[in-house]
Every structure is written in C-alpha cells, then in structure tokens.
C-alpha cells in the first residue's frame, strides 16, 4: 500500500489551535452601523476612540495557508482553499508526474469522475446552493392568507424558549446559584448588571489586554451584558492541565495541556471570579452585598487589577512548559 499523503501530520504536534472565541453577539452590534431608530442618542462622529485596541499579541502572523491564499489572491492565481481542507486530487491536478504517484483508488476515481452524460457538471456539489434557495418560497408565502406574517429566517437563537436569554448571562447565573435558589441568583445577576451600568467606566491597563476588538471602555457601562462577557472571556484560560498519573515514570504525574471549549473556558473564569469575590470584604450590609462584590471583581478584572489574571497566567505558563507532553498517547 503506498504511503498516505498527510499534509497536516507535520503541524499536528506543533501547534494546537483551540476553537476561536466567538465574539459575543452583542459585541458585534457595537461596530455595526445601527439604524438611527435603534440608537437615537449618540452620533457616530463623537464616538470615543479605543485606547490600546491593539495589544502586544493582537497582530500575529496568519497561518501559512492563509498567507498563501492572500498572496495568490493578489497575484491572481487560485490559491489554497482556507475554509475547508484542499483535496489531494485538486492539489496534484494537472501535474502528470504527481498523478502517477497517487493511490490507485484516487486514480480510478479521477478517471471515473469525468461526466459521461449530457450534463457537464457535478450535481453533488450543489447542496449549498440549494440551501440558500429555501428562503425563496417563504417570500412567496407572505401573501394574504398568512395571519401573522412569516418569521424572518433564519430564526434568531433567542426565538427558542430555552435560549431566550444571553448564553453568558445564563451560565453565570447558574454558576452563582446556591442550594438550587435560581431566583436569588437571578436577582443577584440583575444587581450585578445594574452595578456595572452605574459604576464609572473602567480604566484599561495596557499590560492586561482584553480581547482584541473590545469596544472602548466608555461604551461598556451602557451595555452591561457585553461588559460582563468581555470580562469573563478576557480572563478565561485557553487550556487546563490534565495530570496523567504514572505517565512520567517514577510515580510522577505527567502534566498534559488540554484545550477547553467556549463554555468550559467561561466556566473556569467565572469560578475564579466568584472565588475572588467571596474573599472580598463587604462594605455595606443587606441582601445585595455578594452581588456588589462580584460586580466589583468584574470591574477589577477589566481594569487588570484582579488576582484572577495571575491564575490565568499560571495555567498558561504551565501549559507552555508542558507542551512537549502533548504527544503523550499518540501513535508514533
């Protein structure tokens, strides 16, 4: 059997690429030019300019294939497809020498795939186009006879009963809940958001960069959900350290970095923040004090003063140190 060509095998042990943090839905709204009816209160020309929008790590080099695609776009040649992996057949297409070395299955496939009938095109690749056509008949149906009109498609996430609230807010609320008292947690969440919107705008510390593309601090109090999401996502760790017992030999655990998903990352960050908040000191008295401490902690996270940043730094440092252990358990 001829050896399989694997283009990605080389890069696998070297880089690990966690799932990119989705920019929160509301975050995008800040940059879009909203219709005047949405925000009849501020003009675009007096928007403050973001301070320190570019952090030290924000302008890194793109991936090799992305760079190649960009160059080929400039020169006018068809470059590698970035969205999906490029099939090997397409890479070697036209190159007689390389085609000879292809596996037999692929060679047969290339011969057979030439359309023999009347149609000179494939029908299998048209699925995506069909999907976009689905909206067409719904327009036709919005004629008289539809009582309440047709919904705009695709339906927003919040249209579903179970996803009507912001995912980050919901997750933090659930993590704050103690003894199953959801209503108390919800009240605390409301108090936190109220505090974020009434407290003075944070001063950003350039040494602790927030997520790239974060709005300027003066915009944050008016959008407390974004404020909360930004604080959590900025301080969320990219990975956790898994200790594999006995793998290092001599009874020592092997530290293996494991990438985390979005919700996992947020969960870790929220728990760190809640831990730090419980250690804070109450200034007043009454019911809302825990909420106030959490809110103050969130502000100090955005300002770069919180001890949570050190926790994140520690995990990342350990992850970098243990990156050689990523190979553990892989077939060689």
């Amino acid at each position: 059997m001829p050896p399989r060509i694997d283009f990605f095998a080389a890069s696998r042990p070297l880089t690990y690429r966690p799932k990119a943090l989705n920019c929160p839905r509301r975050a995008q709204q800040v940059f879009k030019t909203l219709p005047a009816s949405c925000r009849g209160f501020a003009n675009s020309h007096d928007l403050p300019i973001a301070e320190g929008a570019e952090g030290p790590n924000t302008d890194t080099l793109p991936h090799v294939s992305e760079e190649a695609a960009a160059i080929n776009e400039i020169t006018g040649k068809g470059g590698p497809e970035i969205e999906q992996g490029t099939p090997v057949q397409e890479v070697v297409k036209g190159d007689k020498e390389a085609e000879k070395n292809l596996p037999k299955v692929m060679q047969q496939d290339m011969k057979a795939s030439k359309p023999s009938g009347v149609r000179s095109y494939h029908t299998s690749a048209r699925r995506l186009q069909d999907a976009t056509l689905i909206t067409q008949p719904s327009q036709a149906l919005s004629q008289p006879g539809v009582k309440f009109g047709l919904p705009d498609l695709p339906m927003p996430r919040s249209a579903n009963l179970h996803h009507r609230y912001d995912p980050a807010v919901e997750q933090v609320t659930n993590l704050m809940m103690r003894h199953g008292k959801l209503s108390v947690a919800q009240r605390n969440m409301s108090l936190i958001l109220t505090h974020l919107r009434t407290a003075s705008p944070p001063t950003i510390n350039p040494l602790r960069p927030l997520l790239p593309g974060a709005p300027p601090p003066s915009h944050l109090p008016l959008n407390p959900i974004l404020y909360l999401t930004l604080a959590i996502d900025s301080v969320a760790p990219l990975m956790r350290i898994r200790s594999q017992r006995g793998a290092a030999g001599g009874g020592v655990a092997l530290q293996i970095p494991v990438p985390l998903g979005l919700r996992q990352r947020r969960r870790t960050a929220v728990q760190w923040i809640l831990d730090a908040a419980t250690k804070r000191r109450n200034r007043g008295s009454g019911k809302g004090m825990f909420a106030q401490r959490v809110a103050e902690e969130l502000v100090s996270v955005v300002e770069g003063k919180s001890s949570v940043w050190e926790k994140r730094g520690g995990v990342h440092k350990m992850g970098v140190g243990a990156r050689a252990n990523l190979k553990f358990g892989q077939r060689r």
Partner: peptide, 17 residues
C-alpha cells in the same frame, strides 16, 4: 456606615445618556 450605604439615595447615573 454600612447602614448609610444601604440607605443611600442616588439620583443620577453619569453613564446614562
């Protein structure tokens, strides 16, 4: 002091437009 903080009446939010 703690009671005063609890009973404080704030009539303005400088962040509001």
């Amino acid at each position: 002091e703690r009671r005063a903080l609890r009973k404080r009446i704030v009539l303005s939010n400088t962040n509001a437009l």
